[in-house]
Nucleic acid binder design. Structure first.
Lengths: 196, 196
DNA sequence: TAAGACCGTCAGTACTTACTGTCATTTTGA
DNA sequence: TCAAAATGACAGTAAGTACTGACGGTCTTA
């Protein structure tokens, strides 16, 4: 097989699948529709993927963007509250935006597709632990006030999660505000709340 | 028709439909399954609802809990930041929790079901406007610092939205923390950030 | 030019599923 | 106790859908 040619076809089909499934859900889209959107016949779709489920799994593996938060924490933390939170928030939002369509599919059909939910819920858990540990250290250094570090981490994550979902769903509430500005102000709000 | 008896049957079927659709999505559940879960035959389901779509719409109308945020603001605001935010947050979380299954259905199949997305996105928009206006007034009274009231409103809503989604999806991150405590701390964090 | 990789068309299979019709049975209320 | 209402059992229809097989065409490459 040529490789390049086949890769192009597979890619087009996978992207079409992601687009349509993000919009209408796994069960809301037919293999016929996916093939048509990709510009191929349904037969070709099944020549490249052995089943509809296999198509989704392949697409997920191919286009799932995962950045290791742990490395980020180890390498870029400066123990300056504002710049650290800004760095974390920007990276989180970047990951969420890169994976936005997979996130939509996961939120629609996560219950049905087995390995899906697991992989989309491992990262947040890790982030919470890293962030909790970070707040603990900052408290120990006397750089932030004494508060529950776990709850602070949760609040920060949930605020970022809410904003990410708003952006993904094109929330009209966000229309008038540049997203980057929202992130900066959100971080500043947190900073004011936690600085001694 | 008796009315009472039929209402019981209809209710059971609607609740079964909501339960299953919240779990597996509109297209992931069959009328057969719904009827069985409700304890009736599929035929009876179609005697009470003319179609699957009609069943969902009826269930939505019957069980959609809508509290007027506007009235809440008009009657219960005291212009004390901490108690006001706590009241707003508790009410918001209450509405989200009452509608949790409908919210799940809406997030899965909102794209397909026409009138759905509209009705689940009108309230947040109104809340944002009320909250923005509230922060403006608080700034004018000198009770909070000078910041962008719209962004503050957004941040507060998104943090609450994120937490609500976490609770709805039984997020393991929330396991160790009583939800009410999280709400209180979250409000306190906001209060510290905005008080002069 | 010949072989092979890739694709389209079309017909078709097997299964699911929303929805209906018929008739008998049970439940309910006056 | 009787009539009406509600339900179940079962068979069946029509449409949709994932997936396959057979054949022929086109394009690249050696």
């Amino acid at each position: 097989m040529n490789g390049k040619q086949k890769m192009d076809t597979s890619d087009k089909i996978m992207m079409a699948a992601i687009d349509l499934m993000a919009e209408k859900g796994y069960n809301g889209v037919t293999t016929q529709e996916i093939a048509e959107k990709a510009g191929y016949s349904e037969k070709t779709l099944f020549r490249h993927f052995k089943s509809k489920q296999n198509l989704l799994e392949s697409a997920f593996n191919r286009y799932h963007y995962a950045e290791e938060m742990k490395i980020l924490f180890q390498s870029k933390i400066q123990y300056d509250l504002q710049s650290d939170l800004l760095m974390i928030s920007r990276n989180y939002q970047n990951i969420m935006y890169c994976n936005r369509k997979l996130i939509l599919i996961s939120s629609k059909d996560g219950g049905n597709l087995p390995s899906f939910h697991e992989r989309t819920h491992k990262h947040p858990q890790q982030l919470k632990e890293l962030l909790t540990e970070y707040f603990k250290q900052m408290m120990h250094k006397g750089k932030i006030i004494q508060t529950d570090p776990e709850i602070n981490a949760l609040a920060f994550i949930y605020m970022n999660f809410g904003a990410a979902m708003g952006r993904i769903n094109a929330d009209p509430m966000l229309q008038n505000i540049p997203f980057e500005k929202f992130i900066e102000e959100e971080v500043q709000l947190f900073t004011r709340a936690l600085l001694p």
